[in-house]
């Protein structure tokens, strides 16, 4: 969680410094959903992510060096500098990609789950999406198909209360979006998305259910983003009081306090983690800076699997 938060803050800073040319949708404040959910998955399980996806990637094992290089549009980045923040993927880690289209990745996760079911594999897929996505047709079509075929997939809704610049309650007649699961024949679970253990436990149960052939689960983690929809968003749609109230429920601070209170960690150990995170990010930024941009001819490659003697068609 600390790595995700610091990665985002570092990316925001490096964007201001000019290292990162594109836009960023930071997940600061939402670290517990990414970490709790991905920790409950196995390495060969897969996820689809969203425009606010850096946390999901890191939680699924993404390497901050290649992520930072991708944000900096470098040739060694996860997508060769051609995807950027919105399209980062690492198929070897089961990260099928962030997505620039709200709800766009959900059908893909359902399709991956279909492949697992057809091949009798014990793998599952997890689709991350936000509260805005449950008003998109793609969510409903995919949820219906997954419920109908009892596919091993988890629908993980990070309800951060805002779809872009409009409050969730002005976008849907429901506050509890997990209710939508009922119409597709699978359970909807509501949890505190800022409690990493609650997220982990709910996802573990959903994963067990999926692996047992009992079908999908919809998990709604109530959470909040501290930053705007995108960096530079003037955030006219919410109050400082609301932001302060959510910061009082900060997922990282709560987890620290819990670890210290239970004696599972000493303050000195947590300090070491913080220091290691900074070192890791220093290295990631240095790696990105030192990496060359992709050669211009890379723009024309990788459209199709075979290049047909270099012809673009």
């Amino acid at each position: 969680m600390a790595l995700i938060r610091e990665f985002e803050l570092r990316a925001i800073r490096e964007r201001r410094n000019g290292l990162i040319p594109g836009f960023i949708h930071a997940c600061v404040g939402q670290e517990a959903t990414a970490v709790g959910a991905c920790t409950a998955l196995r390495p060969d399980d897969v996820i689809t992510s969203t425009h606010r996806g850096h946390g999901h990637l890191i939680a699924k094992g993404g390497d901050p060096r290649y992520m930072m290089a991708e944000l900096a549009a470098r040739g060694v980045g996860y997508c060769g500098g051609k995807g950027g923040s919105l399209h980062m993927a690492d198929f070897n880690l089961g990260i099928l990609g962030a997505n620039g289209i709200v709800a766009g990745g959900i059908p893909m996760a359902v399709g991956a789950a279909l492949a697992f079911q057809m091949r009798n594999e014990q793998r599952i897929a997890l689709a991350f999406f936000g509260d805005g996505a449950v008003n998109e047709g793609a969510f409903h079509e995919a949820a219906n198909l997954a419920g109908l075929w009892k596919l091993p997939v988890i629908f993980f809704c990070e309800n951060n209360l805002y779809g872009e610049g409009t409050p969730q309650h002005r976008q849907a007649p429901l506050r509890d979006l997990a209710q939508r699961a009922a119409s597709y024949g699978f359970p909807g679970v509501i949890i505190d998305g800022n409690d990493v253990m609650a997220v982990y436990e709910a996802t573990t149960q959903a994963a067990e259910r999926a692996r047992a052939g009992e079908g999908p689960t919809f998990i709604e983690g109530k959470t909040y983003r501290y930053r705007g929809h995108y960096e530079g968003d003037p955030m006219v749609y919410r109050s400082q009081e609301e932001l302060a109230a959510w910061k009082a429920r900060d997922p990282i601070r709560r987890w620290r306090e819990r670890l210290l209170a239970s004696g599972d960690a000493q303050a000195s150990e947590l300090e070491i983690i913080d220091k290691e995170v900074q070192e890791q990010l220093d290295e990631a930024v240095a790696f990105a800076k030192a990496s060359p941009p992709p050669p211009l001819e890379a723009a024309l490659a990788g459209v199709y699997g075979h290049d047909h003697d270099g012809r673009i068609f």
């Binding site: 897969v46 689809t48 198929f91 099928l96 959900i106 059908p107 893909m108 996760a109 359902v110 399709g111 991956a112 789950a113 279909l114 492949a115 697992f116 057809m118 897929a125 047709g137 793609a138 079509e141 995919a142 219906n144 198909l145 109908l148």
Partner: peptide, 19 residues
């Protein structure tokens, strides 16, 4: 079901998994 988005999207997800 009559769900073209799900049909194509699920086809893509399955294809990415080697089907």
């Amino acid at each position: 079901p009559i769900s073209e988005t799900a049909i194509v999207g699920a086809g893509l997800g399955a294809a990415l998994m080697g089907m």
